[in-house]
Amino acid sequence: MKTIQFREAIAEAMSEEMRRDETIYLMGEEVAEYNGAYKASKGMLDEFGDKRVIDTPISELGFAGIGIGSAMNGNRPIIEFMTFNFSLVGIDQIINNAAKMRQMSGGQFNIPIVFRGPTASAGQLAATHSQAFESWYANCPGLKVIVPSNPKDAKGLLKSAIRDDDPVIFMESEQMYGDKGEVPEGEYVIPIGVAEVKREGKDVTIVSFGKIIKEAYAAAEELEKENISCEIIDLRTIRPMDHKTILDSVKKTNRLVILEEAWPFGNIATEITYQVQSQAFDYLDAPIVKINTADTPAPYSPGLLKEWLPNSADVVKAVKKVLYK
């Protein structure tokens, strides 16, 4: 094992795949000469040249569409959005073209493309720069959606995403790029659609994904002191979702808390709640509790943002609630 930053894991995954497959290129704003807005493509222009590491003007709709068109004609593009907040001006291309092309062409054109970049909040960036669109993209058939929470998962899953023959939304976080973690030295991939139990426990199941899962880890440490044992599941892939890992855990603990950094209306936690009540109704000893951001646009002021975001204290409270403590 070696210890690297999240951003290095992203760059390693892209570089390793680009070495083994000439059809892959990376395109986006500041990905080449600037080495990536968050340095997630550092060194790649030097290695691969400007034919394969391509700076674009600020035209998310345009370059998302150019990526999809090239994927219809032999390329396997990686399209970087500086953040998924900016993907909204290109969302027509992702939903109407990337996701649906294969079906509406009767199976003739699959779109092997990865759209990647950070999701959710990243400090006091306020309403337009603090949004999580996992549930928007995961709602759309034709896409796959991945949100890793550590460097090892990020590298292994990004390699799988690049090799996948379907369009993949791959979501990172500005606040994770500096995170360090152990990754295997050699070649490895992590399959899409498989969740991981990050912490085993017996009293309650906590499902989460992405950077906010750290709040669950902190809560579990706190609760351990009170002899409450938490099992933490990292979804890693949102679509397709690994229902089995969640259900197996809930059948063991009989209690479920879901932690997701997203608006509460119709989000990923809502979907999990539906699936669990329909498939494990008799195993539940308490109503499921979900923890989300406030049902408002993200505020700027520090106290307001703290109130808006979910945190480990919220998780502690939710766990105690489902345990009737």
Binding site: L61, G65, I66, I68, G69, A71, N73, N75, D92
Partner: peptide, 13 residues
């Protein structure tokens, strides 16, 4: 919606 796709086809060529 098809306009950038057309440029993308040309990009690959």
């Amino acid at each position: 919606g098809q306009i950038p796709l057309g440029a993308g086809l040309a990009f690959a060529d």
